[in-house]
């Protein structure tokens, strides 16, 4: 049941879908590049955890999902919401803390989420989304809805207790859940190999669910693993664990560039970049005759315009009114509940 699977190239994919995978990855890459600029220019406050390098994971997994499927996202979550179909303008607006943002400026980078397209929260606590995905999956199963819940988490979550509790619940109740471990090799600066004996996907065996390990730099491999997992989930057979071997190009967060951290060698970073998910996919599409160089360039240009427009939208969106700082806490507020810090 448990096996490592190699990058898959044998399946024939419609050209339009192949290009959409490229488009989605290019969108994340350009989005994150712009995020770095906006952070440097102090237009974005706080910290951002860029998804660059891991695009094939979000896009490959979400490529196998429908709009009504849901995901729980992480602190490194921009890629998940974008891959699920999030709007670039509303994403930037959230990062700029504006009312036009998905969370009306109440969430920011770490909690950016569009519930309408099935993002059930982006979590600043490692592993915390896993049981949330299980609860949503239970509803889908109980209501006989043909929907799937995906929980994204990093290799850092693999030793977090609640993830294991959640995997157990999903397994005993055959829940339509896919556990996606984005193994980018480091929990901030701690190498996975120093804190874990076996590979993450092996843990799935303990819960009696299939555990697979795929090349997370290969969008096609991730997509096919996700398809198998969603089919299993949709036919009532229960959860799957997918480990995606990947790498983040930037530091743990934007500010890390300015700190002299040396937990990764430049040689290691360069080696992973040789297997860039976007370049690999562009090359493979061209080799297979799914598109030409001009098509790639056209998509890149289209994304560039979308990013520019998104930033423009964000900048024009008004900031929230401080008098409304307590809004959104409750669906049903009461007098003095929530209370201000000073009696009005």
């Amino acid at each position: 049941m448990e096996h490592k699977i190699e990058a898959s190239t044998s399946n024939i994919m419609p050209a339009q879908f192949a290009r959409s995978l490229y488009y989605d990855m290019a969108r994340i890459r350009q989005f994150e590049n712009r995020v770095v600029t906006l952070v440097d220019d102090n237009e974005i406050a706080g910290v951002c955890h860029e998804y660059s390098g891991q695009e094939a994971v979000a896009v490959g997994i979400c490529g196998a999902l429908t709009t009504s499927d849901i995901v729980t996202s992480t602190h490194r979550g921009h890629g998940h919401t974008l891959a699920k179909g999030g709007d670039v303008g509303r994403m930037f607006a959230e990062l700029l803390a504006r009312t036009g943002g998905y969370n009306k400026g109440r969430g920011g980078s770490m909690h950016i989420a569009d519930v309408g397209i099935g993002i059930f929260g982006a979590n600043g606590i490692v592993g915390a989304g896993a049981p949330i995905a299980c609860g949503a999956a239970h509803k889908f199963k109980a209501a006989r809805e043909n929907r799937v819940a995906v929980s994204f988490f990093g290799d850092g979550a693999i030793n977090q207790g609640v993830l294991h509790e959640a995997m157990n619940l999903a397994a005993i109740w055959d829940l339509p859940v896919i556990f996606v471990c984005e193994n980018n090799q480091y929990a901030i600066s701690t190498p996975l190999k120093e804190v874990t004996i076996l590979d993450p996907y092996v843990r799935a065996q303990s819960y009696g669910m299939p555990g697979v390990c795929v090349d997370g730099m290969d969008v096609e491999a991730v997509y096919h693993a996700a398809l198998t997992a969603t089919e299993r989930a949709r036919t009532g057979k229960g959860p799957t664990f997918i480990e995606c071997q990947t790498y983040r190009y930037f530091g743990h967060y934007t500010g890390e560039r300015h700190m002299k951290m040396n937990y990764r060698s430049q040689e290691e970073v360069d080696r992973w970049k040789l297997r860039d998910p976007i370049k690999i996919w562009a090359a493979r599409m061209m080799e297979s005759g799914l598109c030409a160089q001009e098509d790639i360039e056209a998509i890149d240009a289209e994304v560039n315009i979308e990013i520019d427009r998104g930033v423009e939208f964000a900048r024009s969106s008004p900031p929230p009114n401080p008098a409304e700082a307590l809004d959104c806490m409750y669906a049903v507020p009461y007098p003095n509940t929530p209370a201000w810090g000073v009696e009005p």
Partner: peptide
Amino acid sequence: DLRVLDTPISEAAFTGFATGAALAGLRP
């Protein structure tokens, strides 16, 4: 079974489970 759920000893998981179920439209 689908509305009355006995869990393993996993308080964190069943608490988070309720959050997800609520987001999906249930009242746990």
